[in-house]
Amino acid sequence: MTTTPAVTGPSRDLRVTLPRVLRMEWIKFWSLRSTIYTLAITALLTIGVGSLVSGVIGTGDGGPGQDDFSDPASMSLGGVMLAALATAALGVLTSTSEYASGMIRATLAAVPARLPVLWAKVIVFAAVSFVLMLATSLVAFLAGQAILSSRGFTSVTLADPGVFRAVVGAAVYLTGAGLIGLAVGALLRNTAGAVTTVVGALFVLPVLIQLLPASWDDSIFPYLPSNAAGSFMAVEAASPSLSAWPGLAVFTGYIAVLLAGAAVLLKRRDA
């Protein structure tokens, strides 16, 4: 233990740049065990539930109806909606854990412009999540189709129309749910509040909305974030859903608006 810090020359370039802030967020992201656990749980849920659905579909009392098999791809991606809970929670924690511990003050002192911190979190989270979730969705799809075909049911390949888009769409949804979590976490700065809000918006609202009169339900339902995402994860759009590209536009619109709000407040509020 020495008491005198080494004095270094003033010529060293210690400016804050976006690549450097990206590196900061990359180190933060990977230096928590909870990140790795959550990503592992997401992959297990996506692949496990997809395989389970593919393995048990049609074994019930009534036998498989024709409708059940119109979209074999969606069966193998049956775990995605559940797995999105995990990525959404990870996204929330990416923002809120800094406020819970007080580290945000050290972070913002190191990056006085503030906004690069938010963008770096978004970029690191989106890149890592998209790559891993794309691999996960592919594995879930291939495993599910193999199970379906081994049981003598109809299966599809990535070359069939709309199938590749649905598999990529699953990775987009898993990543997007996390970004929604990240943005809501940055807005609310509180883990419990943000998790509740995101779970409510992505998972509870679509159920509650179905209790509304049909005319209301039909005009709101397709525009909810998870239903908009459902449209680009389905090989064929089912009424009253949006078709794939408008669905993607609505879903990314939610993310953009939430992140813009988070950016404005990050810049304005006291840390």
């Binding site: 370039d13 210690l14 400016r15 804050v16 740049t17 450097r20 802030v21 590196r23 900061m24 967020e25 180190i27 933060k28 230096s31 580290m103 050290a106 972070t107 190191a110 990056v111």
Partner: peptide
Amino acid sequence: YHHLLSLAASNGI
């Protein structure tokens, strides 16, 4: 270590 490493990284330290 990782806490300090992340803060250092943002300023190129």
